[in-house]
Design a protein around this nucleic acid. Sequence first.
RNA 1: CGGGGAAUGGCGCAGAUGGCAGCGCGCACGGUUUGGGACCGUGAGGUCCCGGGUUCAAGUCCCGGUUCCCCGACCA
Length: 494
Amino acid sequence: MCIRARTLPDREHAIATPMAKLTPRSQDFSEWYLDVIREADLADYAPVRGCIVVKPYGWTIYEHMRDFLDRRFKETGHVNAAFPMFIPLSFIQRESEHVQGFAPELAIVTHGGGEQLEEPLAIRPTSETIIGYSYAQWIKSYRDLPVLINCWNSVVRWEKRTKPFLRTTEFYWQEGHTAHATHEEAIEEVLRMLNVYYDHMREDCALPGIRGRKSIYERFAGAINTYSVESMMGDKRSLQSCTSHDLGQNFARAFEIKYLDRDNTEKYCWTTSWGLSWRLLGAVIMVHGDDQGLRLPPKIAPIQVVIVPIFKNDAEKSAVMEASSHIARTLKAAGLRVKLDDRDETPGFKFNDWEMRGVPVRVEIGPKDLANGTVALARRDLPSKEGKSFVPQAGLAERIQALLPEIHQSLLSQAEAFLHGNIRACYTWEEVKEAVQDGWALAPLEDNPANDEFIRGELSAKTLNFPLDQTEGEWKCVVSGKPVRERALIGKSY
RNA sequence: CGGGGAAUGGCGCAGAUGGCAGCGCGCACGGUUUGGGACCGUGAGGUCCCGGGUUCAAGUCCCGGUUCCCCGACCA
């Protein structure tokens, strides 16, 4: 079963570009997104509701993202481990807010080996509880702290409304779980990991975002504070790209995660958890993509450079192929991920094909280039003519190595301009109402669940977060009118 | 979970009033081509989403279900 595309209702467009495979982004962003996933060969639907099959090209992008992030976890002192995907139902019920938050989304196993289980097993929607059980056994002394563990796994949440990568029944992610002696240390960890995510997004994925604290209403079930990075998609809706939770002592108390301190008294640990899923790949698609398809940041692109040979006859072919192979070898030796496209297709077809797949750099080599000692160099981040130039073959590897960071920066800058250009400072409810029709509002807000509910009810938008970077000031809450010192981002979201 | 749309070859679609399952693209093979989605010829490819029912006969009509898309509710 495959992801289906719709007919292009825009006939004129279809005639103008008869081979168009994507719904134009401006016409229907949601269809465009699904079209890109299909045409760029990222994923298929699975025969199970809300589940997807991630194809090799899509998975390779995720692998690169994962590897960069994993490196950052290791650099900040974390180690990886694995815990069971089955969680005794009673574990999830131990933390009261946690169970309330997750009960509606649980998948539960009632049978095993042909027999009904004595205690049903939940398939993990997240692992705080089963990891808490282990931590309670592992942690005896202040000398055992902190515990800094990360898991790469998948979790299951029975979502009502799903969308490839953004919200799937099963999704791959990482979840970090740490335990600390003091609340200060735990808070430090929560913010450290928020910044690790923020840096990963910017530096590896060219994705800007706004770091902030979630409102009381929006925070994780069982946390005393949740932080997020909110990203703005191409349709100006927000995507919560990652979260980092200060769990206080809630799970420590529920699972008896205690240590004996220097003063010989027993104390509860302070725990944290933080996660980032393949949803971020959805953000890469929706932030960078255009009407030609994907535009991948070079660091996570499965193929960084594609070489397209051009020739008219056999004589030209052998000369061009020889030069192409040589260049491919040179670029590979320089550490670039290179693909020489020797398929029996026309160059024009290949140009479009690789643009669809988001390859950052294209090298074209034809007879004219052989004569001139040049190649045509095209960059995906700029429109076709603007991004194409003829450069000498000599020093090509160095040139491309220097170009990749430039493309990264260009994608980041474009996204950043879009993000900041679509946030409006608002000071009245009327202004907020108007701003969220076409972007985000930054407005004074009292952190009170009643206000969140009001916003949701009135606007089909929600409180995204209270940005960490706040300007000093005192305003009146746009909902309650009470004096506040903080402003919140409000917008439509995924 | 509520409202609306949809499901026919790998993809996009057509198949009034029930009567031999089709088109474009893609795919395979042969040839001509190749600097922005080439062309000619030949050919392969189908549980018409699933299960019941009506009928001499169901892609088409009726009932039930599944999945996908959109809007809402819900949701780290």
